[in-house]
Write a protein that binds this DNA or RNA. Structure first.
Lengths: 351, 351
DNA sequence: CCCAGGAATGTTAGCGCTATCGGCAGCGCT
DNA sequence: AGCGCTGCCGATAGCGCTAACATTCCTGGG
């Protein structure tokens, strides 16, 4: 059955003794050249049916698993999409990720994940190391990056999608919405609803650039609706991004700006935390103080009065970005390189 | 400066025109052999200081990023740890993942993530595809897998750590706790606290084997404390794993087992959802019905009366598993291949 | 003053795969 | 009969890197 088609197949296998089954092993077993086995795996239509059947049997018998590192090297394509997100625990991104990988997986791409913990230094290191795998595409969270990051990505000539924000100068492609406009509209809504003393609460330093954008929107709105007055702002960057921080922040706001009638949080996490804290301390929302969030988490519509917040296209960011990347990776030009998915003010009981 | 040390460096670069900077490009620039550049990158101590400095400068000037696929192929090591988790949205695993990748990253390993959505078929496909990257280690969630999965992993000769459960026959190594014992103890606690009509609520079919183990523990406890009586069990597998399912499940339990005095949920997600639903419907917990969970999420200690639940070693599972894998990957034998991290009944207001 | 022995660097031969081209049947057409 | 053409398969030459060995140069002890 196994003729000696392949030469040099004598007693090779030097370096490591425990290397796994290779194309050649399968080829020998099937009595064909390794090239044919490779074809069966990648373009089966170009192989005669009975040869194909024999090869497929051999593959199964050997338990052959193609070595993708070798495949990458030879083909100059990795079928990897490098994905940079700030954090895993913020469950927002997990939805985006789910959308992304669902679409990509259907086309045979794998997601290689890295997180930055909202730290620009780590982002740079991360991207350097991800670049080493020669990904076919890059999914980035945010549009604000170090100069070195932009340079590296540009130089690598890899399709890049930035997401979760908006800019006029994307590295390559863009799928998101304007954090600034969203916050502006939230304040507009509050103004329309009769609130007169809003107080922004969000992380300002750190590497959380999206929170910063929301502040910008808040400040612009404050200038529009209450010109000349000092806008109320509380920096939450000392508090970890968790529900638990809601209590301390609620208290802090009460101390620094007791006159505020609505707390405008930069994220649902803090806002929901504040709702929970208010509940356990007997503070009534929205009677004593109103609260708004940003993100529309699941918890936000189930908690107490329901959180008034901004709903974001979590899932669709992932799906749209994947579609866009697929186009770019195939070399076809997508309908548009900038996709604005918008947002929606979700009005509930808390404000 | 750049002598013609390397031969065959004429006008190579055939196949693809856009290939990136290689070792050889750097070597030419620095006037050394590519081997020396490789050494500077991996074992700088073996290179003379002034050569090293020159090479490092060249690396920077070229913006060189090593091709890890090529490195893998040549060295037979990928510095990748393949990681299989059921889902991203269940935030429990994100803590484990954080612990895992923190420890691994410090040793230069990257995490390649895949999720199964609690589906055995997808787990098998996933592992096949992950195996293609020739990971140096495998992190698995759960201890129950298809025969094919066990065979593949055993054959691949890669260190494997199974987690989040317990078994006497691990594939290789094990870091976890007994879901069964944990649920048994929870019921013991409830029995001791005077409850007499518990009702288990959890997903039974699907591929969620850990939920199944918890049921086993429940049944064993029921047999111990209320022998001869039919244990109350509700299958939640029709309901998505989200807070929102808490309401419907609460209602279902009330209809099927109105006599139950405590609902024993297999996960905090359902339990917290039920707490939220009870709150909005005016059902008092624990007076009208008591509730327990499993997992001790952040929300669980902030919500209403506080959820009585089982605290699990989320983070340490990741850290311990990483440490164990590192040992195995280095070829050193870890202190023990089976690590039981235990659990803890967290008593709060809900039961 | 010579040579053993180590430090520093270079040379060679792959790792497992794919791109590319070349060869050889078998077909229909003039 | 001869021509090209298509379908199928094999041989060859790398992809960018590292392991293993070879070579060169320098040091110091006899």
């Amino acid at each position: 059955m196994s003729s000696d088609t392949e030469p040099a197949a004598t007693e090779a296998r030097r370096r490591s003794s425990t290397r796994s089954v290779t194309l050649r092993d399968v080829a020998q077993r099937a009595g064909v050249s390794s090239q044919t086995v490779s074809r069966v795996l990648r373009i089966p239509d170009e192989v005669a049916p009975h040869t194909r059947a024999r090869v497929e049997a051999a593959v199964r018998e050997c338990g052959y698993v193609p070595n993708l590192a070798a495949r990458n090297l030879a083909s100059n394509r990795s079928r990897i999409v490098a994905t940079v997100i700030p954090s895993l625990s913020a469950s927002v991104f997990s939805e985006t990720l789910t959308g992304l990988s669902a679409v990509l997986a259907s086309e045979g791409y794998q997601v290689l994940l890295g997180y930055t913990d909202y730290d620009d230094e780590r982002e740079e290191q991360l991207i350097r190391s991800l670049l080493g795998r020669r990904p076919d595409g890059f999914f980035m969270t945010g549009v604000i990056h170090r100069e070195a990051v932009v340079t590296m990505l540009r130089a690598s000539d890899v399709p890049v999608v930035e997401t979760w924000d908006w800019t006029d100068t994307p590295i390559d492609a863009l799928v998101g919405f304007s954090n600034e406009d969203a916050m502006y509209e939230m304040v507009s809504f509050l103004h329309g609803a009769g609130y007169r003393a809003p107080c922004f609460v969000g992380s300002l330093v750190h590497g959380d650039h999206r929170s910063r954008r929301r502040l910008d929107g808040y400040l612009r709105a404050a200038e529009t609706y209450w010109p000349g007055t000092e806008p109320r702002v509380i920096d939450a960057s000392e508090h970890p991004l968790s529900l638990e921080s809601g209590g301390p922040l609620l208290e802090l706001a009460g101390r620094l700006h007791p006159e505020a009638d609505v707390l405008v949080f930069a994220t649902d996490i803090y806002a929901n935390g504040a709702l929970l804290a208010a509940q356990s301390r007997g503070i009534r929302v929205p009677e004593d103080i109103a609260v708004t969030g940003f993100g529309d988490f699941e918890l936000s519509r189930l908690l107490g009065p329901g959180l008034t917040t901004v709903a974001l296209p979590n899932q669709s960011i992932g799906r749209e970005a994947a579609a866009l990347l697929l186009d770019r990776m195939r070399g076809t030009e997508p309908p548009s390189r900038d996709v604005d998915l918008g947002f929606e003010i979700r009005r509930r009981g808390s404000a």
